[in-house]
Design a protein around this nucleic acid. Structure first.
Lengths: 345, 345
DNA sequence: GGTTAGCACTCGAACTTCCTGAGTGCTAAA
DNA sequence: TTTAGCACTCAGGAAGTTCGAGTGCTAACC
């Protein structure tokens, strides 16, 4: 049973009005917002229909109507305006971020921070990962006799390092040997194959006593792969949620923030795919109590190596979906540009 | 004019009670908390004195008393109990953090996260820096023909890296030359001396066309030094503030969080020194409106190279100073241990 | 002198009651 | 099918009331 065009217009008007005012919308307000010359009584009848169909709700008899989750869903899927993004915001986003290129972790949190600032919502950022990650390149850098820095580059171009104090001084030769051994035996193999036997094997081939260094390096590598493959999730601009009257109740606000600050919050997020590059999850669709009055919009971005990260926002169900989704899309796009073309700076 | 011992005991009782209940404290509650057998009337007289002296305040005539900032100050300086920290908490702190050693940035935020969790307050963490920072060591690592990773270690052992795509392929020889040139000409000189003239000079000595690489490296170095010398400030567990009734008003909570999320929040923080390794700033002592009802406790930690970072918490003025300060001290101490002894893992 | 019992007084918090007005649903006419 | 009209509902605010925790003061007491 399809909705008449007028019903859709009325639903759209209700959502638009409610998003702006946060107050239940009455029939007169809808009339004021619509161009057509129908009376409020007509609108009332239509609204009663929409309520019966599940698109609107009434907080109490003598109040106006509020969109239901179903109403928002229809709005998001069919009705909402295209929103154009102000270029200055994009500029701001790009110029702030281009200062942080090269430090991937920081870039992600910084992107979250900007998104939060520019959308006025708390932002969620998830660091990019690939399904299978391995070490692509090892490097041992000697800082002083007993100190080295271990650097490794992963398959998806993430670079990590660790400073490492040894109990024995190392010669140049040993450093070179370690370098060769590490790159020969421990690159391009998956995490689970970084075993002790391999270390022994590598060591035999090296012809120098560098066990300590090798062990440290492999230890480091497995830490890194563990960390990298465990996607990190960042919540930025949490306090923004307090701007919205639906979260003025500190209990609700805390429940929301706590559940998103959790390291396992990832499982709560909708993940965009090729068919839906922007995922919108509304209220109870989130499937967990603290998020019942919240909506989440997520997009993805990817690094040059194809690792996929996520970027999104949380807000009240009464969220300006059009505006926020549009911005988010643009930001993700710009992030892709930054990550893929302009790698030097 | 010094306070009598009994007055001090009464003040202490008021603070202790108020910290626990968040309700103005009446004379009877004080009597119940004191061991001495004085009547509530006596306590009332003393409390009236304490109010006249500025240590207590009365929200309204028919209510109990609340400590003033001055009262908290005296409490903190002279009266509060020594608090002993539960070892399990320290264990938790240490074991979580030891997983993150070697990534300094992450370590700091993670430390903040733990502090916030274990104290139930939002935590502030400031990344360590030295007054003067320079590059101690450069390394150019070739990933493929046109791609290198630049790694540098700063004076205070911070390690940063950047991946760098060049327009020309590089030979092994050129990489070695660049390495040598960078370490010969650009280590141990302060940020402001990383000038173009030096690049030209270095290049002449190198005997190979590696300008592009050198420029990129120096560019990177100055970025890093800029970033590193600009102390970064992290606010973790922001939502904790909502636990406290004094910040149930979303406006106040937001004002507080916004002012601390700001990148320039550093100037608002008390900085511990040798004489006061734990700085406590109470309410209006903070000198800015959004922090009038908040107190800040800060301690410092330092890296092996002596760079000093900060770790602290924010809370309502009605904060359990004894408990929080004690924990914070222990955490900072453990962080020092981790950073200075146990660098390998 | 300091300490205490007793008492009148104060005033916020919580609970009523009342009123207002926005908004509804329904009916009957256009 | 639309509209005007009207009776009805009910949240939210204003005004009034009560309740009780807590005070300051006085006068007696040690």
């Amino acid at each position: 049973m399809a909705l008449s065009d007028r019903k859709k217009q009325i639903l759209k008007a209700v959502v638009d009005d409610y998003v702006q005012t946060a107050e239940p919308v009455g029939s007169r307000a809808v009339v004021a917002r619509l161009k057509t010359n129908v009376s409020s009584a007509t609108v009332r009848n239509e609204m009663a229909d929409l309520e019966r169909m599940g698109y609107l709700e009434q907080p109490h008899t003598s109040a106006g109507r509020v969109p239901s989750h179903l109403g928002y869903r229809l709005y998001v899927d069919e009705l909402m305006n295209q929103y154009s993004v102000v270029p200055t915001e994009i500029d701001q986003f790009v110029s702030t971020l281009s200062l942080r290129m090269g430090e991937l972790d920081r870039l992600i949190t910084e992107a979250g921070r900007m998104v939060s600032e520019l959308t006025n919502h708390p932002a969620i950022a998830v660091s990019p990962t690939m399904e299978e990650e391995a070490v692509r390149r090892f490097e041992v850098i000697q800082v002083d006799a007993e100190t080295v820095v271990l650097v490794l580059v992963t398959t998806s171009d993430i670079i990590k390092n660790r400073i490492c104090h040894l109990t024995f001084p190392l010669s140049d030769l040993e450093v070179t040997a370690a370098n060769r051994a590490l790159n020969a035996h421990f690159t391009n193999i998956p995490l689970e194959d970084l075993t002790d036997e391999r270390i022994t094997a590598a060591e035999c081939g090296a012809g120098a006593d560098i066990t300590e260094l090798l062990v440290a390096a492999i230890d480091f590598a497995s830490d890194v792969l563990n960390t990298v493959m465990r996607r990190d999730i960042y919540l930025e601009g949490a306090s923004q949620i307090l701007k919205y009257p639906e979260f003025h109740d500190p209990g609700k606000a805390m429940a929301l923030l706590d559940c998103l600050s959790d390291r396992n919050a990832l499982s709560l997020l909708p993940v965009p795919d090729d068919k839906n590059p922007v995922q919108i999850r509304i209220g109870s669709e989130n499937g967990t109590a603290p998020l019942d009055n919240a909506s989440i919009i997520m997009t993805s971005f990817h690094t040059a190596r194809g690792a996929k990260g996520l970027l999104g926002v949380v807000g009240p169900t009464r969220m300006d979906y059009a505006k926020v989704a549009a911005r988010l899309c643009h930001f993700a796009e710009e992030l892709n540009h930054l990550l893929n073309h302009d790698t030097r700076r």
